[in-house]
């Protein structure tokens, strides 16, 4: 199974293709059958004109990163695992609920 991920053009934040647009929440991401993924990526690539940078396919297991790039994609999803900005994605450090 696959999903399409990208970075938002204006601020670089990690986003996922929902089928109709983009969401920062992976749970909104559209899960694709492997053989449908390339065609869907073609559609998502149109948004590179003004909205996103470099959309690409990631392997998923349900709505979680999977496969060889699982660690990399998990870090993209949840943020640095340590250090000055260990944080819940999208929330500034020190303001975590």
């Amino acid at each position: 199974m696959k999903m399409i991920s990208s970075n938002k053009l204006t601020d670089g934040r990690v986003i996922f293709w929902t089928g109709a647009g983009w969401s920062a929440d992976m749970k909104d991401g559209k899960v694709l059958e492997d053989d449908a993924a390339d065609a869907e990526l073609e559609a998502a690539l149109k948004d590179e004109a003004t909205e996103v940078v470099g959309p690409y396919l990631i392997a998923v297991d349900g709505h979680d990163p999977a496969g060889r790039e699982r660690l990399r994609e998990t870090i993209r999803l949840t943020g640095p695992t340590t250090g000055s900005t260990k944080y819940v994605h999208g929330i500034k450090p020190g303001t975590e609920a």
Binding site: N7, L9, G12, A49, T50, V53, G54, R76, P80
Partner: peptide, 27 residues
């Protein structure tokens, strides 16, 4: 770039010349 008059392929070398990279989470 934001208004679609430059593609990412055209913009990338320009941003890099100004020290702007795209990393995992952000620029």
């Amino acid at each position: 770039r934001l208004t679609g008059r430059l593609t990412e392929d055209q913009f990338k070398p320009l941003r890099l010349m100004n020290g702007v990279y795209l990393q995992l989470h952000a620029y």
